[in-house]
Design a protein around this nucleic acid. Structure first.
Length: 582
RNA sequence: GGAGCUGUAGUGUAGUGGUCCAACAUGCCUGCCUGUCACGCAGGAGAUCGCGGGUUCGAGUCCCGUCAGCUCCGCCA
């Protein structure tokens, strides 16, 4: 039986036609004298009806859920009253003549429907069944569509797609590498790329000028709902292009994606925010701008209070920061809010409930009435609001991130935004370096090939912390969707940055020698960006985890529950690689 | 490495120390049913209560450990 149509595509225009369909039995309704089958393929579901006098009736009687069948029949209009408006094909049905069972199916361990709330263990164990669910198929189709939009956009602008190796070289800095033992060079290892960073820069040295790749990247770090050990990056690099032109082009691409996929009009241009401003206003470098609620610094007001916690924090060089929530909280709820800031190092969460006749607060007694008034004014607080404070000696490490987490929590809990709203922004002027307490040295905040802001270069040695990077992150709704920078394209600056992060000339030569040679071989000024493709698609799909837009994802412990990877291997394989297990 | 949540028929849940040889819904099986679309009706089968140990006269229930999934912190240039 040759398939002539797709189940989900049948419409009133097909009425009267003989069709042959293939698909899975989504449901079977046996009314005794007649049998209805909901037949599902990738395009949707259509109802097929069999009467006892049709040759296919016996087969229709025997099939069960998820059997694979081919059906021949005639498309008919449904009578008035029998139309199903909830089905795209609901105006028609197929009067089934013949049916062929192409394969039987075991009883599915969970329902193949969109609204199932089933244990994720099971979904991942039987991913091929999970992926039969229409919502999952829609996610994968969306992913493919977004990839196509990106390819078209970039190809239109004369970018070329280049593949870079998966088996490559381990370099210091950055995430933990996945290593692959070399059989031909026993004791030596390839590394899987954390990103094609150096390779795409070398393509610029090679003169390709405009490169992109949907690149698979690997980082051996712990997982999160927005992080998998292997993920896909839209990797982009250009030569001879300033930040203005480049970011405008990337914005155009993102605007096209959101317009075509969501019918959403994103602002032009995207708002820009310095890293410092983002931290001070939102307590994070990836702010969710769908709701206002900004952090207010009341250090100057708190310094003069009798409340030791506040005064001490300011005296120690820190600050007191606060948020205004337009909501009332019970004692228990306030305790829960304290649980939100605690993991970020906040030692407590102070609060003041603003009322008609003053404030109600356990710390009110430490403040003079005019100090209270000043604080209430600083927040423009009105009766019914609650002010929430975190004080800490470490402003950017503790106080602001704690309130940033609280802000996100409150935004979600108080329903301050909707899911179909998209608020992009560029976060710029990141610090180039940050001090790593464990290593006792500065490390690259972005990566060691990020160009410093030119007027800051001279401070690289004397005052590394103050050097800004020519870097930019694209943030949408609190998701870091892309990150990029101008790259260092001269050996001198590259050496200076290596030096600032404690990579001496010898190490630089041995680890990055090929790269330094390339920079000296006529490297053009270049810059680039990389989009977290899984995150972008998840955002567009309205999914809170990228697992739902990846066909075969891993669990939080890095396992693939379907194939049971990772697994032990045959000792002979290890022997061949000259690897001895402990 | 750390914290929290979850784990009970195929699935989703209820069960808060004793009528629990575990309940409800759905799915499954059998029978009936010619306009259903989460079809309906009647009957039936289906559970080492994640795993191990402990407390107790008695544990699905309390305690300790452990495993798995999820969320978060650390980590993620």
């Amino acid at each position: 039986m040759e398939r002539t149509h797709k189940c989900g595509q049948l419409r009133p225009e097909h009425i009267g036609q003989q069709v042959a369909l293939c698909g899975w039995v989504a449901r079977r309704r046996d009314l005794g004298g007649m049998i209805f089958l909901d037949l599902r393929d990738r395009w949707g579901t259509v109802q097929v009806v069999f009467y006892p006098d049709s040759p296919g009736y016996a087969a229709a009687d025997a099939v069960r859920s998820e059997y694979v069948v081919a059906v021949r029949g005639t498309v008919k209009a449904r009578e008035e009253g029998n139309v199903n408006p909830r089905l795209a094909t609901g105006a028609v049905e197929v009067a089934g003549a013949e049916m062929e069972v192409l394969n039987t199916a075991t009883l599915p361990p969970f329902y193949i429907t969109d609204d199932v709330r089933v244990d994720e263990n099971l979904r991942l164990r039987y991913r091929y069944l999970d992926l039969r669910r229409p919502v999952m198929q829609a996610n994968l189709m969306l992913r493919s569509r977004v990839a196509a939009i990106i390819r078209n956009f970039l190809l239109e602008r004369e970018f070329i797609e280049v593949e870079t190796p998966i088996l490559t070289r381990s370099t210091p800095e950055g995430a933990r590498d996945f290593l692959v033992p070399s059989r031909l060079s026993p004791g030596q290892f390839y590394a899987l790329p954390q990103s094609p960073q150096l390779l795409k820069q070398l393509l610029m040295v090679a003169g390709l000028e405009r490169y992109f790749q949907l690149a698979r990247c690997f980082r051996d770090e712990d997982l999160r709902s927005d992080r998998q050990p292997e993920f896909t990056q839209v990797d982009i690099e250009v030569s001879f292009m300033g930040a203005g032109e480049f970011l405008a082009m990337m914005e155009d691409m993102v605007r096209r994606i959101f317009a075509e996929v969501k019918g959403a009009a994103l602002p032009k241009p995207f708002p820009r925010l310095s890293w410092k401003a983002a931290m001070e206003k939102y307590g994070t470098d990836k702010p969710d701008l769908r709701f206002a609620m900004e952090i207010t610094d009341i250090s100057s007001l708190a310094a003069g209070s009798q409340f030791k916690v506040f005064a001490d924090a300011v005296a120690a060089g820190g600050s007191v920061q606060g948020l205004r929530a337009t909501a009332a909280f019970s004692r228990k709820e306030l305790d829960q809010l304290a649980q939100v800031v605690a993991p970020h190092g906040a030692k407590g969460l102070a609060w003041m409930a603003v009322e008609e006749e003053g404030v109600r607060s356990p710390i009110a007694k430490f403040f003079a009435p005019e100090q209270i008034d000043a604080i209430v004014q600083a927040f423009a607080a009105r009766p019914g609001d609650v002010l929430l404070f975190v004080a800490d000696a470490d402003t950017f490490g503790v106080a602001l991130p704690a309130l940033g987490a609280l802000r996100e929590h409150l935004g979600r809990r108080l329903g301050l935004y909707s899911e179909d709203q998209f608020c992009p922004c560029w976060v710029v002027d990141f610090p180039l370096l940050e001090f790593d307490q464990e290593e006792g040295r500065y490390v690259a905040a972005h990566h060691p090939f990020t160009a410093p802001v030119p007027e800051d270069v001279e401070r690289l040695a004397a005052d590394p912390a103050s050097v800004r990077a020519q870097a930019y992150d694209l943030v949408i709704n609190g998701w870091e969707v892309a990150g990029g920078s101008a790259r260092i394209h001269t050996g001198e600056v590259q050496q200076a940055v290596f030096q600032a992060i404690g990579i001496d000339a010898e190490t630089a030569r041995s680890q990055f020698g090929f790269f330094l040679e390339a920079l000296a071989a006529g490297a053009p000024p270049h810059r680039g960006i990389a989009f977290g493709f899984d995150r972008l698609v998840a955002l567009l799909a309205g999914e809170s985890s990228i697992r739902n837009v990846i066909a075969f994802p891993k669990t939080t412990s890095g396992a693939d529950l379907m194939t049971a990877a990772p697994s032990l291997v045959d000792p002979a394989q290890l022997k061949e690689l000259k690897i001895r297990p402990e």
